[in-house]
Amino acid sequence: MRKEKAPRTLAKKQFRFTAEDGTGYLFILFAMVIFAIFTVYPLVSAVITSFQKYKPVGSEWIALENYKATLKNALFWKAMRNTVIYTVITVPVSQLIAFGIAIMIMPFQKKTQTVFKAIYYIPAVASGIALSVVWQWIYSSSPSGLANQIMTFFGLPTQNWLASSKTAMLSLILMVFLSSQGQNIIIYIAALMGIDNSYFEAAEIDGANFIEKVIYIVWPLCKPTTLFLLVTGVINSFQVFVNAYMMTGGGPDNNTTMIGLLIFNNAFKYGKYGLACAQAVLLTIVIAALTALQFKLNGDDVEY
């Protein structure tokens, strides 16, 4: 990247335009230095390391070996599959839930709206670690764990939630549904408030009922918001780490090992920095491709 250091002497107004340039560079100097050291350098370094067998001194150049090893690795594909399953279920369903709740909050006065927004947002205020600790106990395998008490209440068999390969992924997904809707709801409400009343008036003249209004006016007009939430949701979901790390450790039998956890394990558990970097670079490519794809599929009539 081009790095323009801002010499302070430039501010002496030798030429009008350089003075403005100088001030500009001075204002962004700190930000750009931080950006260069902590974003650009690590990114370049990660790409370089991905072609190496990393050693603290004198890393070995091994060309595409890390990538080849990754693509041949069954665990990598399993982690990819797990991540895709997790994303494909949590992101769209969360959005539908959030959209529904946002619609339900709409008829109320602003004060009431704020109360509901706050209620649904509260779980997002707690840290991922705190939530994981709590949910780990909710999913306790003993019959008196909260989740199992609920199962018993409805006359269903108790489950070994986090330790059984049948339910482990489901448990993580359920936790997302119940603890991370707030943000989506608030954003959807903001979008709903922005819809001009004339749309609804016109629809009423045509005799549209409530459901028709939602389907033919609200949903299409919320499309930019939906796309925004979809894109950010997918990006975040592909990077998920804390839940799996804390609650299942990726188990049982790697059924909840997601790509973020796999990269972490390769790097910081096994010290395979080169391999981890190769996988992280692949993750970046996948995320970039998915983002582009979503814009292409959904964004024909959305201007950004």
Partner: peptide, 15 residues
């Protein structure tokens, strides 16, 4: 820079 997943930068940053 906003689009880069943190997994990519963490290993080099750690080193």
């Amino acid at each position: 820079g906003m689009m880069i997943p943190y997994q990519v930068t963490q290993v080099p940053l750690y080193i």
